[in-house]
Structure formats: C-alpha cells, structure tokens
Write a protein that binds this DNA or RNA. Sequence first.
RNA 1: GGGCCGUUAGCUCAAUUGGCAGAGCAGGGGCCUCUUAAGCCCAAGGUUGUAGGUUCGAUUCCUACACGGCCCA
Length: 500
Amino acid sequence: MTDPTDSSTQKHGLAELIAERRAKAARLSEEGEELAPYSYPGVESLAEVRAAYEHLQTGEETEEHRRVAGRLLARRGGGKAAFIDLVDRSGQIQLHARLDVLGTERFKRLCSLDSGDLLGIDGAPLRSRHGELTLRVDDYQVLSKALRPPPDKHSGLTDLETRHRRRELDLLSNENARKLFATRAKAIAAVRAYLDANNFLEVETPVLQPLYGGALARPFMTHHNALDRKLYLRIATELYLKRLIVGGLERVYELGKDFRNEGLSTKHNPEFTMVEWYEAYADYQDEARRLEEMVARVAQAAGYEGEIDFKAPWRRLVFMDAIREATGIDLRAYRDADSLRSAIRERGLSMPTDGLSWPALADDLLSKHVEPTLIQPTFIFDYPIELSPFARSHRAGAGLAERWEAFAGGMEIANAFSELTDPDEQRARFEAQRRLALAGDEETQPHDELFLEALEHGMPPTGGVGLGIDRLVMILTGQTSIREVVLFPAMRDQGPSTKV
RNA sequence: GGGCCGUUAGCUCAAUUGGCAGAGCAGGGGCCUCUUAAGCCCAAGGUUGUAGGUUCGAUUCCUACACGGCCCA
C-alpha cells in the first residue's frame, strides 16, 4: 500500500488532526471548491427560518428557497444521504444532504467536511418523517475550513481555565455562553434606553487621566511619551461628569470601563464596567427611585426569571440600624476606633480590627456582617461622612452623609450621593483625605484643584449614581463569579506552554 | 499572603493496595437514502501540568514550582 491515507501510517494527536484538516482543505481546493469566499450575501438566521416554517407537518416538504450559514456541529449518515446539524448565533437546524440532489462529487465533498467548518447553505425547508424541521441542501458553499478540531460536540468545553482564556472556544461550543453574553448585551442596551428616554446625555470622558479620583481605590499608572508625563487609568468617571454638570449639561451618563489595581476575586476584575449618571436638581432620594425603576426594567429586558424581586419599592435600611440589627453593635455608642474595636472583640465577631480606623471598622462591619445577607434588593442609607468624601453632609447632621448603597444577591451593586457641591467643604474633605494618606492609608482621594475650581463656578444640587454592570449581569444570569460575565477576564500568565 | 482541592488523548471522563494508562466523542479506512448523543466493522491515537525524590516498579507516595478553582486574610 502506498496510499498516503493508509490508516496504518496515521496518528491522531493534535498535530495529526491539524495535518489531516489541512490536507482535506487542499484536496477540496484542488477539486474546485472555493473555501473562503469574500462574502455570502442574503443569509437569514436559523431562528428566522425556524419561525417561518414551524407550521410544516411531519413529512411535509416545500420547494422554497432559504439561505442560511453557520458552523457544522455534527453529521449522521453518509452513503447516499446524510443529516448535518448546523449552528448559528440564533440556534440550530438540521440539514438533509442527498446524493440525488447534489450529485456524487458534491455530495461526497459535503460529507467529507469536519465539525467546526463554516458552511453556507441554500436549501428547501421540510419537516422530516421524525418531525424535525430540516433544510434539504440544494447548494452549499464552504465559508471557512476549520484547521483545529472544536471541543466535544456534546459536552462542549467545560474546563474553566480554558473557557476563560479561550472564550471563542467557549462561545462556539457552549450555547449557554452565547446566551449569557447576549443577555449581558440586552441589559446594557436597556440601561442606555432608560437613561436616554429620561433625557440624559451619553458622554465620554478621559480614560487616561492626569489625576485619578471619584472612588477609594489604587490606580493603574501609565506614561504618555509625547507629553512625557504620568497618566492614570481612571478608577471612576465621577469628577469629570460633575464638571459637565457645572457646565450645564444637567443630565449626563457614561457607561464604560473603570480600572482598579487590586486583587482578583469572584466579585472583582481589575477592569470592570460601570455606568455613572448625574442629575441636576435631584438628591439621593430621587436617585434611589430612579435606580429601582431602572433595574426593574433592565431585569425585564434581560428576561430575568429568578428569585430576586426587582419591583419597586426596594427595602430601605439605615446604615447604623442595619449594623445594629446584624451585630448588636450601635455605632452611635462607639464614636472612636478604640471603643468600637473593643465592642467588636467583646461580641466575638470574626473580623480583623488591628490598625483600622473608625470608618474602616464601620465599613467592614457592614460588608462582612450585613452585605452577604442582602439577597433581595435593598438600599442602605446614610453612611458615616468619613466614608464618603464626595457626598453632601446629611441635612439632619449627626456625622452622616446623604449617601446610599444598593445591594442585591449579597453584593453591592450601586452607590449614590446627594453630591457635595460646596467647594470649601470639598476642599476640607480633600485635606482630610490627605491626612489619612499621610497616616498610611493606601486608598485615599488625591487633591484635585481643577475639580475644586469647577465647583467654585457653581454647581446645582445634583444626585449621582454609579451602578456596577458586571455585578448586575451576574445577578441577572445567576452567576457567582464575575469571570463568567466578562468575555475575557484577567488571568495570570500561563507560563511555558507545551501545546501545539 | 495562608489553607484545601484539581491538572491523564484534540474534547468529556476512567484507572482497585504502588504493578502492562482505558473508554466515549472527534479524527482515519470501510458500510449505510429519515438520522438526530444515529448505527455497524476495522485500524490507530499518551512526555499522565513541570522538575526532582522514594521504590525492583509511580497517574498513584513525598518535595518544589506553574496554572486553575474554592475558602480565609
């Protein structure tokens, strides 16, 4: 035997599988098949075709013409007829390839294609004798020859690491992954639709900022060569958006990536998607109503059918009461770090307390002992002012700020203030932050003089909200890890690879 | 940063007490005109994450490292 396809000489590791596919592509090409056309016009989605022929009775055939395209998932049969499963973003359909329709040569070539190949089909809809909606293949066009084998056709790709590093393989082999990111897109579109409908202007402010601000977080740094200056990737859009409110844009929002140079977890990716909006003449109570109304609509648009009831009004708690109910500690009675620390230790609450300031301890009490219990949507109102350098002090005083955070699924999803508009007060807050930084706090607000000057031009009363899109999508899709809702999550370098 | 768990064929998974590393799918050679996890016959496919160690013998036991997951900080 000198036949190069003699099975006794074949191996089928990955390198051999690739060589086999390359050889097959070469063969098809020699036989006159165009393997990579520049376009394939007139394609309908499989879902559209399915919907149009759902009425066909078992065994009923048509002579109508439909053009579809997708990836070859599986083939059954051969000989003189075969069934092929084709998948596109909208769904799946069965093809019926027949030798008597296509002729011997083209039928055999079609049957020789591999799973993963991209295929265009001209076909006539029918319902098979077993009741499956099917397209009889009248003509076909190879749109791309896949040189590597796809993941398993039944199990798809399950290895978490590969699913996240090689999202394209996750998407092409797992319908759930395709659905999830379609849901994410719907949720984001619904956020924009809500804000647009309420007369907000979508704006874009710098990602590269001379000074970072608007949140308590460590930034990424970079360098601009031509300007020879240090720049930071933004940790929030807050300060620029407020300058737009000073400028008279009245209602603005920005939906985009923020970057925080912090650890990774199931709830934290170093780059994440946030929408912030600011509304002149409104306060934080107005914004609470806006958020619950918006999120209820987003959940509906995303087709959410889970356990969480987003319908307004959401539960409303007050910061100190929420901590008292969960831990028995009344923060009003412990106004300094030392007394609060001993109260925490007396009650045997498991949390580190050493070296933490009073605001940090108060914040940790909330995030460790209250936040995980907030499954149904809940607002926590009236944070200690020390935790809120951009929030206006509470009209009732008492060391509080007009600030709330919203929680659902045991996670913080949004944060809002009656914005601090007084430039002198803001200057004092920056000064307080500077003292914290000198004392060793790594997450403080740098002094931003341009922002202060903007406030000095006069800022109307304003309500502002930041809503974490990734976490909202986690809740809407029932995922417990942010890596499942971000297409390409941050991963460590893989190290030396032995893969082909 | 710490603890625990995982890493085996392209994919999904086995492997008993430390004793020749096996299946299914995919791929190759055949058969097959209503199949749908199609089926039947044949032949093949492995640096068991990496580097060491113990042992007559290591996927298995030990150490370090890499990557991932969960929990804690």
